[in-house]
Computed example of a mutant assay.
Amino acid sequence: MVEHVTPPGSVVLGVDGSSHTHPALDVAAGEAARRGVGLHALHVYPWSAAVRSWEPREALEEGQRLVQRVAEQVASIHPAVAVTTGVVFLDPALGLVQASQSAAVVVVGAGGAGTVPGHPGEVAQKVVMHASCPVVVVRDTPAVPDGPVVVGMDPEDGAPEAMRYALEDAARRGVNLVAIQGVQSEGMRRRWKDFATRSRLDEVLTEAERANRDRLAAWRAEFPQVDLRLEQVRDDPVSALVDASDTAALTVVGTRGHGNLMGLLLGSVSRKVLQQAPVVAVVRIDED
């Protein structure tokens, strides 16, 4: 069996039977064009994953037809993007996770067989949890191509990995960046009703907001070409991010890693945004 090699630095698109018409193809092709890199269309056929030495000719030919159709579609919309293709026999999520080790970004559709409405399919969820690079998950509803990039800011450290990804993407697109930080302070106030505790809570929240403004000043200095706007809301951050995603080209969230293939812990905010926003980039935040 010939081992599959993903071109280093490429945009990897997970291909299935609907990929040639799915918005994920447009997202992946645009991503490759903006980055000036190739697009690698990868179809992972699961049937013989348990017996990798056996590769049925019919399955291989069908996979090759699928990726070739995608390659032709990409050529029609972004002729300057070089397209490579691959067909492997492996668990689909594992195949894409392996490809992520040398990719710049992996793009997958949110759907899949047995998908629960409003939730990403099993393959998309596993790739998000285990990929080594950022993963863009695309729903059936396309985003707004000329809209701003939206990013969620962590109230503790500002999520620098997610911020950098969002700023670089906004710079490539030539659009604005909206950074949103939401703190559920009203729920805290209902639990802590005494004046002293509420006063201390207000002090902590005010300090966090000040720290974020300082971080944004540093980002603005590094990315002067990006119009960066901060929205700080003392409310449910999911609602703010999802509302903003309706008119965004991309919504970026971070999630914290715990080892290479030990999995990532998707926080409640990232998970809920992933379930609702049209196009979401999940960026791994490594902890020292």
Rank of each mutant, 00 (worst) to 15 (best):
A29T: 06
A75D: 05
L94N: 03
V2P: 11
V151W: 15
T197E: 13
V238K: 06
V108I: 06
V5K: 12
T21G: 14
W219D: 08
G182K: 05
P134H: 13
L90M: 04
R52F: 08
G30K: 14
V37S: 05
P56L: 01
E62N: 10
V135A: 06
Q68L: 07
H258K: 07
S270L: 09
D154G: 12
L96P: 00
A277R: 14
Q68M: 06
R213Q: 14
G118F: 11
S185M: 04
V97S: 10
S48K: 05
H4A: 02
V127W: 05
R191F: 13
Y165A: 13
G118P: 12
G152M: 04
A104M: 07
Q232N: 14
T251E: 01
P155H: 02
D140G: 12
T251Q: 03
S270M: 11
M163A: 12
A110E: 09
V175G: 01
V128M: 10
T84H: 11
S76E: 11
Q225V: 14
S53H: 03
E156F: 07
P8Q: 04
G121Y: 00
T247D: 06
V88W: 01
V11R: 12
A217Q: 14
V11D: 10
V282G: 08
S76A: 15
M262K: 10
L266P: 01
A103I: 03
W47K: 01
L228A: 14
G14H: 13
G259M: 01
V81Q: 04
R234F: 11
E122P: 00
H78R: 12
A99W: 01
L13E: 12
K272C: 09
T85P: 01
Q181N: 09
K272P: 02
S132N: 03
L241R: 10
P92E: 11
E3S: 11
S239R: 13
V127M: 02
A249R: 06
H130K: 09
V5P: 14
P145E: 15
A99C: 08
L228I: 14
Q276M: 15
T85H: 08
A110L: 06
M163W: 02
G267P: 04
R35M: 10
V279L: 14
G112R: 00
T251P: 00
A277E: 07
E287G: 15
Q64H: 04
Q73S: 09
G14V: 09
Q73W: 04
G38M: 05
A159M: 14
G182Y: 07
P117N: 00
L42E: 02
P120F: 08
I285Q: 14
E61D: 13
V226H: 08
P79H: 14
H40I: 07
T251R: 05
V273M: 10
L265W: 12
E222Y: 15
G36P: 09
G187M: 12
V137C: 08
G267M: 05
R256N: 02
V107Q: 05
E287V: 15
T247G: 02
H4E: 09
V37F: 03
T21P: 15
Q98S: 03
